[in-house]
Design a binder for these strands. Structure first.
Lengths: 107, 107
DNA sequence: TAACTTACTTACTTTATAGTAGCTACTTTA
DNA sequence: TAAAGTAGCTACTATAAAGTAAGTAAGTTA
C-alpha cells in the first residue's frame, strides 16, 4: 500500500540527530529567548555541562539549525542563535510543548 | 516577562521521557500501522533488539501512551497499540515528519 | 600583582545504554 | 521425535554518553 510508511527513514534520521538529551531543549530555549551567548545559554539549560553544551551546539551547527557568531575580543564573545532551518525545526516542537503543559502542568 | 518560558519544565519532562533512541520511532510505527503484535512491531522497527523493544514498550505503557493486550494462548499473542494519549502524542510528530521529508528526501 | 572574565579543550572517570545469547512455556507441525 | 513458533526475562558484555576537573588565552579590574 503506497500510503503506508511515507518515507519514514528520513524521520528516523532526523530523530536520531535531535533525540539526544538536551538537544531539543536547547532549540526550544534559543527559540524562546532569541540568540544567546554561550554562558547565558548554559545557565538557561540548567544542569548541562559546558562540554556537552559545546558538543550539542557543534552538532546543531553542523545540521545547519544553529549559527555561531564568534567575536575574538578579550574575553571572547560567542553568540548562538537559530537559523531559518532552526526556526522551522523548533516550530515543530510547539505542539509537543502544548501537549506537555496539558499533561504535566496541574490543571 | 510573563510570556517567556511558558512552563518549559513540563516540556523538559516530556522530552526526557520520549527522547531516547527508538522511542518516538515506535510511536510513529504504531500510528501508521495501527496495533501490532510484538514480533511484527520488532520487524517494523528494523534493528532493535527484543530487549530494548520490551523496555521501550514498558516505558510507553507506563506513560499511558501505549496499551498492551495480552492473550494467554499458546503461543501467546500480545498486541500493542496507541492509547488516546498516544495518538495525541504521535500526532505532534507529524510536523516533524513533514520537515524530515522536506529536508532529507531528495527534491 | 593577583584575580577575574569568557568560551572553550582535554584527559579521565563514571554511569547509562545497548547488544548478545541462552532460557522459559506449551502446542502444533514436519 | 525433533523442531518451530511467540513473547518475553535474565545475565553478561560491550559501547557510548555524560560528568568532572583542570588548563588555556590575554586583557581588564581591584
Amino acid at each position: 500500500m503506497s500510503t503506508k510508511k511515507p518515507k519514514s527513514s528520513s524521520l528516523e534520521k532526523l530523530l536520531n540527530q535531535i533525540s539526544g538529551r538536551w538537544t531539543m531543549y536547547i532549540l526550544w530555549i534559543l527559540d524562546n529567548n532569541g540568540s544567546l551567548r554561550f554562558g547565558e545559554l548554559g545557565r538557561e539549560v540548567a544542569g548541562i555541562s559546558t562540554k556537552v553544551l559545546t558538543e550539542r551546539l557543534r552538532k546543531l551547527e553542523a545540521m545547519g539549525v544553529v549559527y555561531r557568531d564568534y567575536k575574538a575580543t578579550i574575553p571572547p564573545e560567542v553568540t548562538y542563535g537559530l537559523t531559518e532551518r532552526g526556526q522551522e525545526l523548533s516550530r515543530t516542537l510547539d505542539p509537543l510543548c502544548e501537549l506537555a503543559s496539558r499533561w504535566y502542568d496541574s490543571p
